[in-house]
Design a protein around this nucleic acid. Structure first.
Lengths: 161, 161
DNA sequence: ATATATGCAAAGACTTTGCAGTGCG
DNA sequence: CGCACTGCAAAGTCTTTGCATATAT
């Protein structure tokens, strides 16, 4: 997974950002991360190898990288989390998010395609996310009440981007 | 719209809550509100008529009422906002939310209906929201890029619940 | 009467900001 | 070498908590 790290560094360079030690570490962490990372998690992991790291550096960077589109922010109930963005890379799609490992799986289906022209409402954006448990985190306790129908839109169950 | 206030008060009573001055005011504000209200907005409006109101009373109540299902919380980019819940009342549905006035319109369409059984992913919940501008808030500047198709799922454009 | 709700004050979590010094390009 | 980036410290925002008092039932 070192190519992801490289892509991340290149993306930062492309935006004219300086490649500092702290940013290299961010790239490393996001490259090897499977799911989302919170600011706190990032700080804690970076602080292990980098003594004297400050919290605001992490915040400033993830905020900047999110604005540039290198990172993608997601609002969980527990707070904001981040991952490598997958906006431009491929076509428009949505996500299935594992509530346990926070892995993200792509879903090649957009609910907006099935809907008809609204005269009344001027659509700007939309959100569609499915939450549950992926194969490895499957739990017996909670059986899915809604038997939803996803298979044709799932390539194979592999983490997104 | 005083029936909404009455329903709200009754809902609180049904849950065994005491009907205090502060809670009556909350009922009033939510009854006459068109869109979502933030904790701050609630506090400010309540503080006008009720001197000596404390912030934590508002927080404690909206948190409690959200847990009881009387209120519904929504995560906006600007922060959490609340409105009278519309869970049990009617059937499952989704929302179109006006980015300007934060009015909410019901959408009788659920993207989960079109999807097929996933062996792999155990669905627990899902989210689907459309953001834009309602008729009264329509803006010329931003023309909707995606010409989405909503009309058959819109009863008429009237605020939800 | 008594358990619940409130006000006050304080703390806690998360995020942002100003400034002086460091280091990338 | 200059400008962008960092660390430090402080403040700002939103939310929660403990405790004594007030109040709904």
């Amino acid at each position: 997974m070192n190519s992801r790290r490289g892509e991340f560094v290149q993306a930062m360079a492309r935006h004219g950002l300086r490649i500092t030690e702290q940013r290299k570490m961010l790239a490393q962490l996001f490259a090897e991360a499977h799911g989302f990372l919170s600011a706190k998690e990032l700080y804690q992991r970076m602080a292990i190898t980098y003594k004297g790291l400050s919290f605001d550096t992490v915040y400033r960077n993830i905020k900047l990288l999110t604005e540039l589109g290198v990172l993608e922010m997601f609002q969980f109930e527990e707070g904001n989390k981040f991952r490598i963005g997958c906006f431009d890379h491929r076509h428009h799609h949505h996500h299935m998010i594992c509530l346990s490992c926070s892995n993200v799986y792509p879903l090649d289906y957009c609910p907006m395609q099935n809907l008809e022209i609204p005269e009344s409402f001027q659509v700007v954006k939309h959100s569609f996310e499915i939450y549950g448990y992926c194969v490895s985190c499957q739990r017996d306790e909670e059986i899915t009440p809604i038997r939803s129908m996803l298979s044709p839109y799932l390539k194979e169950e592999q983490p997104c981007c």
